[in-house]
Design a protein around this nucleic acid. Structure first.
Lengths: 124, 124
DNA sequence: AGTTTGGTCAACCATTTGGTTGAATATGCG
DNA sequence: CGCATATTCAACCAAATGGTTGACCAAACT
């Protein structure tokens, strides 16, 4: 079924899905929303509460996350519940690892990265 | 030292570096460039060759990838060599994997931090 | 020295993005 | 019914993105 006219990496590289997933992740508000949904499903209004931003703006962010497949939204009554859907994330993560040819997880590198972030923030 | 006023995941969520890495990955041309550099280091002109796009456009893409830390560029003679730098990818990948395993999230601390940020911003 | 080659810069353009506000659409409650 | 709550829609705006072209600079070839 898969035509081999172009190399294997091509399909992964050109995928529109990866476009939307990575674009969705490239915003700190949306990453914060994902982190909040990690704890529990939430209604749109509750998602919006900690942010200094209109409800409509958060609604747009949620639409972007939904189109990327990173969350799902189910309307029960008059409240719309948002649920994390880690599968899209996992797919992109797997793609990155296969692509980057590095070892599955290097936690040391991650902690160094975090410490750099925090000390950089202290200097501000 | 690393201050633990807010939870560890927060720095990952708010990091500007993740912004630039994910934004850089959210473009198929740039992902294709990364895949090409996976095979070998390349000169800018050779990177541009397979694309139906001006050299200047590719040059911009390479600047974006460089700022994201995903590649490095070294000028030898009059040709500028591009080299894949998988470390930035690794950090982002590890961040993403955090969503596969359900780590606890401290939402209260997140809200407190946002409030601090906002009042600090008002004073500026 | 003169010319080609490798690459960036600057100005411009169309489209997208991330936000706003105010009106609209459901849904639930007294 | 009449009103409050939850969420989206529509129009708008400023800034960022992804591309173009032509001028420009630096290194190499003859």
């Amino acid at each position: 079924m898969v035509d081999q006219t172009f190399p294997l990496w091509f399909s992964g590289v050109m995928s529109d899905d990866l476009d939307t997933v990575f674009a969705a992740l490239a915003d700190p508000t949306r990453r914060a929303i994902l982190a909040m949904l990690l704890e529990d499903d939430m209604a749109v209004t509750d998602v919006a509460e900690p942010f200094e931003m209109s409800l409509a703006a958060i609604s747009k962010h949620l639409t972007i996350l939904t189109r990327a497949g990173l969350i799902s939204q189910e309307k029960r009554g008059r409240v719309k519940w948002c649920k994390l859907e880690p599968d899209a994330l996992r797919a992109a993560s797997v793609w990155m690892q296969g692509f980057g040819q590095f070892e599955p997880v290097n936690l040391d590198a991650f902690e160094r990265f975090l410490e750099n972030q925090l000390s950089a923030g202290d200097e501000a």
